[in-house]
Simulated scan of single mutants.
Amino acid sequence: MALPLRAIMAFHATARTGSMIQASQAIGVTPSAISQQIQILENHVGTRLFSRESRNVVLTEAGARYFDMIHDEVEKIELATEHLRGHNSISVLNVRISPSFATKCVIPRITEFLASYPNIELRINATNELPDYSRENIDLEIRHGEGYWSGVYSEKLIDERMIPLCSPGFLDECSLSRFEVKDYALIYSVKNVKQWKDWFKVAGIDIDKPLKRTLFDRAYMSIETAVNGGGLAFESHVIAAREISEGTLICPVKDNPEIWQSSLWIACPESHLSRHKVQSFIVWIKSLLKDL
């Protein structure tokens, strides 16, 4: 029996996008044609590849295994075809990055990556949501957290020094004793691994009154608020590197204790490490961080 190539392409597009409608738009056929092709492929292989849940389609266990086996090869076929049509050989790299790291560190330097790897089409998805690699087309993550997640390869990128920071118009550099910090407005990034409570503990300070707090779920919001004179932020020297180097954020605490966190990680299935585009991004991101 001949290999149903049209059906395989319909399956690949649906598994990659998670939607028959999006797959139909990518291939240029109707959603019903996508559904028919998937049924042809399921009949050909003798098993269900998707389960239908309302308007969504979800890969079955067999479908996830099949997608993982053919994904790279289908991408090679697409790239080879485009190359013969006279286009450059472009490899698409899908990277998921935490929003603050993407905003503060990656995007300002992204032209360096694009210049170094002109044959990679980079697609960045800025979210903290963990991907389902069995159904989402994600090559690699820069994941925020405490590390060592089950089911994926993880590698620490950098240790981050956590520092009290504020605008030089709010306080002068090294003008404040650690015991005075609790008297000022404090800015919290609630998703940071280390928090103000950790700073107070290491500093040996008991909190004997309510603190004046402003809380954000994104570090870049905390940094922007601190730059604008909104109080003292407790932030990573990596995420706030530009503001620190430009002098728009300074450390006002003259006897500041050292606190470090390890919360930026490379994460992906081990099988993805063999992809040249993934290794290219890993090399670049490590180079970007090495001097911080």
Rank of each mutant, 00 (worst) to 15 (best):
P4M: 05
A10I: 07
H12P: 01
A13H: 06
G18N: 09
G18K: 05
I21M: 08
I21A: 08
A23W: 08
Q25W: 04
A33K: 13
I34L: 05
Q37F: 09
Q39L: 13
R48K: 14
S51T: 13
S51F: 11
R55S: 12
N56D: 12
V57K: 07
V58A: 06
E61H: 10
R65L: 13
M69W: 06
H71R: 11
H71A: 10
D72Q: 13
E75S: 09
E78M: 09
E82R: 14
L84S: 11
G86P: 09
L93P: 01
N94M: 09
V95R: 01
R96Y: 01
S98A: 13
T103K: 11
L114Q: 15
I120A: 04
I120T: 07
I120N: 01
E121G: 12
R123L: 04
R123N: 08
A126P: 15
T127Y: 01
T127I: 03
E129A: 14
E141G: 02
I142C: 03
I142F: 03
I142A: 00
H144C: 07
I163L: 15
S177H: 07
E180R: 02
D183Y: 05
V190P: 01
V190E: 15
K191T: 11
V193F: 10
V193K: 11
V193I: 13
K194A: 08
K197E: 14
D198G: 04
A203W: 02
K212N: 11
L215E: 15
L215R: 13
A219W: 01
V227A: 06
S236F: 04
A241G: 06
R242V: 09
E243V: 08
C251G: 07
V253P: 00
V253D: 01
I259F: 02
Q261P: 00
W265P: 09
S271H: 11
S271A: 08
H276W: 14
K277I: 07
Q279N: 12
F281D: 06
I282Y: 06
L292T: 15
L292C: 12
